[in-house]
Design a binder for these strands. Sequence first.
DNA 1: AATGTCAATGAATGTCACTTTCATGATGGC
DNA 2: GCCATCATGAAAGTGACATTCATTGACATT
Lengths: 143, 143
Amino acid sequence: MKRAKKKVFADFMSQKGLKSTKQRDIILDCFLSSDRHLSIEELYLKLRSKHPNIGYATVYRTLKLFAEAGIAREMQFGDGQTRYEHVSEGEHHDHLVCTRCGHIEEFENETIEKLQDEVANSRGFLIERHRLEIYGLCANCRK
Amino acid sequence: MKRAKKKVFADFMSQKGLKSTKQRDIILDCFLSSDRHLSIEELYLKLRSKHPNIGYATVYRTLKLFAEAGIAREMQFGDGQTRYEHVSEGEHHDHLVCTRCGHIEEFENETIEKLQDEVANSRGFLIERHRLEIYGLCANCRK
DNA sequence: AATGTCAATGAATGTCACTTTCATGATGGC
DNA sequence: GCCATCATGAAAGTGACATTCATTGACATT
């Protein structure tokens, strides 16, 4: 899966006439071996420990590239930081966010999606995308 | 209803030992007679036309007060601006957001809420709140 | 190997939307 | 009216991006 995404990114880059560089490889490796929901800042700090002279701007631009290439997706959870999550081919999911420990879980629910379509249709609304987030305490933090 | 909210706010203020001022009255009036989803900037500009020397910081602080008093609620729709919506006693609703004209519609769906509860329960998650936003084209912009 | 070409990099700077500070100005209780 | 507080608004500060630009580096050409 890590290998598959590397290929997707490599293909995207060559198709766009963009170059493969040390930094981009390092950032991709680090991203793929990280949490599913990572902010630019977090990834930047994680990288700095091993590669002290990689720039914030490079991390920022490279994550944008990942998003364009379809291997990452930008997310806002309302804490003022953009997070990037891994994307697997065509999937969609929503989130359970723990307000105590920050833990993020994913879920899918076909019925909810269907009901959303109904709501949108009844208003003449054409859906492009949606976001559903449930905030609360995760099982661990309830103890 | 406008009158009721003014009372709620007046009660909140006196209970907190805060003062009633010209500015706060003006801002409350303007807020109550506005769109249901207004950014600080929008409200500030609207106010400036009639009250040129009211400060941005005052609008900002007063909206926070409205939120504390429970007559407004902070919302993020991912455009980088915080919006404040009117709150009516105990109600909850979700949003349809037009990505073209910025129009925001509200909706409620009991079944979706119930399904969310089920999802949360199955993960041992204790819900505090949730947000559901559907982004797309409104009926008008589809034409 | 030296040079040319051009995208990539990263330190520095800019931008935007708040958020706080602080010197002044209002308010409400006596 | 007096005064301890609170409120105001101009200005400065903050945090998280987003852009600039001089330099670097990778490959192609001489």
